[in-house]
Design a protein around this nucleic acid. Structure first.
Lengths: 70, 70
DNA sequence: TTTATATGGAAAGTTAACTTGACATTCTTA
DNA sequence: TAAGAATGTCAAGTTAACTTTCCATATAAA
């Protein structure tokens, strides 16, 4: 599961902290997402999609994952 | 978070067990999703979307949730 | 340089998505 | 009506998404 959050956020000219506040999550959650430390919950994916006016599929790229998906 | 999994699955004429096997989850996971006992992980949402050839947004309906979202 | 701002990331705790296993209920169909 | 098939649902356990707290690094500005 890759994502384009960092790229899209920067294109919108906002900080991790601002995005986090807008979505009601912590800055660490945004940072961890951008750096691929974990996948978003579906709720966070929907919040990001709504915030950026994009579809979940345009922000997150699902690739056949290996032995460690859920 | 509402979803149309049961309706879509029935339209495809398959059992919970068959859908579960195709997505590599348990029958209980599908049943619990259909009956609203919990939200899907983003991976399961992507698997369902891919399986049914639909977008996540067409299967799951995100509504401003209350005090218990994440 | 110093200072402030933005980001990276680790550790420990909580919670909910999922599994396994088991039994109950509903629906067919023989 | 009895039996099998599909579904409902619970309890207990695992795991990873997220929080909180904290410190480190990079950059820019003063």
């Amino acid at each position: 599961m890759k994502n384009r959050v960092e790229e899209i956020r920067k294109r919108h000219g906002i900080k991790q902290e601002e995005l986090a506040a807008a979505l009601e999550v912590t800055r660490q959650t945004i940072g961890s997402l951008e750096n691929g430390r974990y996948k978003p919950s579906i709720t966070l994916a929907f919040k990001l999609a709504r915030y950026f006016h994009m579809s979940i599929e345009d922000i997150f790229i699902y690739e056949e994952e290996k032995e460690n998906e859920k």
